[in-house]
């Protein structure tokens, strides 16, 4: 069976800080990493392959250095990696990204399950996975917290999708797309053999000319949305800190604040 995982290289957002003096982003020394949610997708695809046989292909759209992210997932056991990269793809919003990735998936050919992380840690949109499914006109199951069964005979996946107050159990025919949350699994660490493979691996690069897409549908030109302003979040007002109060008094302080908020 063919499993395709879409991954994204993101800056480690926990390292991105705003300089309070200048109100600008401090980017220096911020490492790039594979979007953490995508690692659950990679792990699940590898487990699917272990059960059902076949191949796991990772694709990523990004600048040339996103190749590093693909090498990282090869070290986990991914068989083949494709980097979708072209200056024409720069500035893509979720619509243009989903279109470009779906074109790359069509070029790959047959597939059974497409896996993506639920969202990317830099943009946090959760829109690209469902967008790909729509462009490919395949069923989707989002925010998957548990795989009950991959049934290659009946060609269905039985999944549990995470909702606000519980789970939906779904049966989805193949081919389909699923997005993954953290609870799904524990991503494996790279093996020594995997690391060797990652070093030697040829990463295929597909550019604009390799895909069946129009220039007006990709990158900034193909993006319906446009960022017009970027600014630091409004600072929270200075809080009160009580560092030397007895528990009795502390309890009174909190209760009083809650009362002021109209709770009782």
């Amino acid at each position: 069976m063919e499993f395709i995982v879409c991954i994204k290289q993101v800056p480690d957002t926990t390292e991105v800080r705003v300089d309070p003096e200048t109100n600008t982003l401090i980017r220096e020394g911020v490492p790039a990493m594979v979007n953490p949610f995508d690692l659950y997708a990679v792990e699940e695809a590898l487990q699917f392959k272990e059960k059902a046989g076949g191949e796991v292909i990772a694709i990523s759209m990004g600048p040339p250095q996103a190749e590093q992210a693909l090498r990282e997932v090869i070290s986990m056991g991914v068989d083949r990696a494709i980097l979708v990269s072209d200056a024409k793809f720069a500035g893509a919003d979720t619509w243009a990204t989903a279109l470009t990735l779906s074109a790359a998936i069509r070029k790959i050919g047959d597939y059974d399950v497409i896996l993506t992380g639920k969202q990317a840690a830099d943009g946090d949109t959760a829109q690209v996975g469902p967008g790909i499914a729509e462009f490919l006109d395949i069923p989707q199951a989002t925010f998957i917290r548990k795989v009950d069964e991959l049934d290659p005979e009946a060609r269905v996946l039985r999944l549990q999708s995470m909702w606000e107050e519980g789970s939906e159990r779904l049966e989805v025919p193949l081919p389909c797309l699923m997005t993954t949350v953290k609870e799904l699994n524990e991503p494996r660490l790279p093996s020594l053999r995997g690391k060797m493979a990652a070093k030697k691996a040829e990463i295929e690069v597909w550019t604009f000319d390799d895909l069946d897409v129009e220039a007006s549908d990709v990158g900034l030109a193909g993006s319906p949305t446009q960022v017009v302003k970027v600014f630091p979040p409004p600072p929270r007002s200075e809080g009160e800190l009580f560092s030397d109060v007895e528990p009795d008094e502390a309890a009174k302080i909190i209760a009083e604040r809650l009362a002021k908020k109209g709770l009782f």
Binding site: T13, T14, V16, D122, G123, D124, P224, V227
Partner: peptide, 17 residues
């Protein structure tokens, strides 16, 4: 909306669609 894990805010428009 917030982006980059809430480290920056971005204002977004959709001019033509």
């Amino acid at each position: 909306r917030p982006a980059f894990g809430g480290n920056i805010m971005a204002t977004i428009i959709c001019p033509e669609h």
